[in-house]
Design a protein around this nucleic acid. Sequence first.
DNA 1: TCGATTTTGTGAACGCCTTCACCAGCTCGT
DNA 2: ACGAGCTGGTGAAGGCGTTCACAAAATCGA
Lengths: 233, 233
Amino acid sequence: MTLLPRSTRLTGASTTDRGLPNATVARLPLYLRALTQLRATGSATCSSDQLAEATGVSSANVRKDLSHLGSHGTRGVGYDVAHLQAEIAQAIGQTQEWNVVLIGAGHLGKALAAYPGFASRGSRIVAVVDADPERVGERVVDGLAIESADELDAIIRDRAVSIAILATPTHAAQEVADRLVAAGVTSILNFAPVALRVPDGVDVRQVDVAAELQILAYHEQRKSSPREEAVSG
Amino acid sequence: MTLLPRSTRLTGASTTDRGLPNATVARLPLYLRALTQLRATGSATCSSDQLAEATGVSSANVRKDLSHLGSHGTRGVGYDVAHLQAEIAQAIGQTQEWNVVLIGAGHLGKALAAYPGFASRGSRIVAVVDADPERVGERVVDGLAIESADELDAIIRDRAVSIAILATPTHAAQEVADRLVAAGVTSILNFAPVALRVPDGVDVRQVDVAAELQILAYHEQRKSSPREEAVSG
DNA sequence: TCGATTTTGTGAACGCCTTCACCAGCTCGT
DNA sequence: ACGAGCTGGTGAAGGCGTTCACAAAATCGA
């Protein structure tokens, strides 16, 4: 069995108004990835079955998702790879690059700063910020040096940042989030294991690695003892 | 005549058989975290409202979740913090420590190896493995040195590992996953942006940071132009 | 003891999402 | 030209999860 990646959640509820269903939005990046690969292999068209195979989504679900885009494939043939890629890219805002500020230059922060996968998928980290003065000035990757947290507001405003990655220690996360929101950030990807409180209109997506392992552990436990249950302690 | 579902064995449907609802399982770690904090503050009991506040889940949802545990609170009073904590810990297998192997000692792998949050939440990384001989022997954290990928099978068997964290480059992920499964791993936390194909009985949870940013970008795009839509290109 | 207050537990309703089933439209071989 | 075989589009149905609304049960004060 393969578990659905229900790990991350949007705090705001009705994000669907007049737009795409949330579940569909969460899968569009997968399709885009698959299409990029297909294009590299030279395929001009692809079927919903192929996309299903490549992404782990059912083919019926693929068709339903793509139909929401108004993206019409051709019956008997499939989807035009290049066209569909462009269409999805536009739908999720990949036609522009999004400037992202990364807060917290610990182990995780540095790893994220060095991750090459962002650039190829529409996001550019334009600043890495840390509260520790010792770290300021340190170069984390070519063209990116750690800046002081004092300059957070200026960075966000001057560099047109609307998305932030939060990789601070847990105890600092809420305070930093408040500052980010005050400075104009409206989307936060939070790695700190804490439920951020943000105003309406700000989206938070949560990545909690330890929680993911705990969820896996639950299923492991059930696998090893499929019969034992409800034993009074 | 009805065709058998030949492709896409990623049915992922009935993960609930006789157990807790999937959505509930995904929230139990949040409750556990909140309870640990509450206990630190000295609270003996807590209400579903308090848990809701701390986790970002609605209080009705909290009560429904906890009722699935059979964990009975006391009306008019709330839940016994220590008791509930123990009950959730048992439900998700936190009474034992789970041995985890980490594959891939790049930036992300090292960051994960150094993350202190695992130990306090039931998982212990017992080995870090990398395919690059140059890295073998390097110490990533106290008591943990990088080992050769050749020893993967032996590590998994000798150290009773059933959970693996996959932090390899994308192109190596599927092959490593196959080896992990062959060696007995039945749960994989995958950071590589690819849909792993695994047999039934193996759980995969996916963490795709770039995809998370793309999802946020979608919503950002809608925020900035709430009126423009369906513009003919 | 009793009523006011708090808070849990839960059946019912609702909404979102997935899957099913099948029609429509395209290509290709003959 | 035409029938056979693919493949997308889509309404209907079903499943899962959340929210609602309220009864039941506990505490507390007088």
